[in-house]
Design a protein around this nucleic acid. Structure first.
Lengths: 181, 181
DNA sequence: TTAAAACATGTAATTAGTTATATGTTTTAA
DNA sequence: TTAAAACATATAACTAATTACATGTTTTAA
């Protein structure tokens, strides 16, 4: 997929909060931001070099222990400008969700297909787990009104993800019960 | 993104319904199936060659008019087996939705950010349009109970898409009204 | 009759993303 | 004290997907 390099903006956005190393950024993709965007370190390190070449970030080398070199990256004003431009610009394209299960369903022709109950049940479990996970996150990451306003955007998208999964689960349940016996 | 070549199965699935040319398949990605999956002809033609080399499909050449050659592709039993295997196998990975707007929101820190109203309003319009479009499709593609059972999977995923967009619109509206003045 | 649109098939170049390979250091827990 | 886990950075190979390039035919409507 070639999709206009959003990774660069994620990195700028994260560096806009605090200086980080490539390793730190990679960790972020395994946790926090990894909830809705993924990237491997093999994508992160080259992107950091490109951003630095473009004059959006700089790095300083720090030594950890005896000799382990860390490159701590900072955003610079030009990078902040690029980040703001990206956020401020419109987002007129709705990205189609490429959900493999949905794709498989498309090729199931009748409601008597014997594979349907098993397929739907598997997805129900997966999405119920996901829903539980998101509910857990909401209460641990945003326990108070104050924490919600501190990180408003993140709070909003977690709410949205929760709504989406709730809807997914409802749809699967409803479809399962409507199946002919 | 490297995601296990789902295109091959979409092509097998479509050829399982009727023989088609590469051009027909490309058209399908602009209409029907294009609602939730995209592919360009530059992906379709090479994939057809690979599927034929694997022994999943064959083609016959027909002449249109004086000399325009069409390659009409047919699925063969091995291809039908591969298609069934794919559908029957579990689908244990939930694909994360890479929604650019959601990504931007993540970097908006406070509910007083002056960009929020405009950003949310733009998305509201886009998703309202999408919702309307899906409602239109539901009534035109599946006007009767009979048409719904004839193409059950397609009906289901259209229902699901409708629910998803309804939820998206609700979330955006609710967020907009909850914003501080 | 003719020009534009649609039909029809391909390859090349580039970008995005995953998986694999490579190398070494520091910290932690058995 | 030592082995495993975590820290830290980087490149290579490969797959997927978009955009651009390339060529020609048939149909439709002005």
């Amino acid at each position: 997929m070639a999709q206009k390099n959003k990774l660069q903006f994620i990195i700028l956005g994260l560096l806009n909060q605090q200086p980080l190393t490539g390793y730190d950024l990679t960790k972020a993709f395994e946790h926090e931001i990894g909830e809705f965007w993924q990237a491997q370190h093999s994508q992160v390190y080259p992107q950091l070099k490109r951003l630095e070449a473009q004059g959006y970030i700089t790095h300083e080398i720090t030594i950890s222990g005896e000799k382990l070199e860390k490159k701590l990256y900072h955003i610079v004003p030009a990078g902040q400008a690029a980040l703001t431009t990206w956020i401020t610009a419109g987002t007129p394209e709705l990205t189609a969700t490429k959900d493999e299960f949905i794709l498989k369903l498309y090729f199931v022709r009748t409601n008597r297909d014997p594979r349907l109950p098993e397929m739907l049940t598997e997805q129900l479990h997966l999405h119920q787990d996901k829903l539980e996970h998101l509910q857990q996150r909401l209460t641990t990451v945003f326990p108070t009104k104050a924490t919600q306003s501190e990180n408003f955007g993140h709070y909003l998208i977690l709410q949205h993800a929760l709504g989406r999964e709730t809807d997914y689960v409802t749809w699967l349940k409803q479809t399962l019960t409507a199946l002919p016996k």
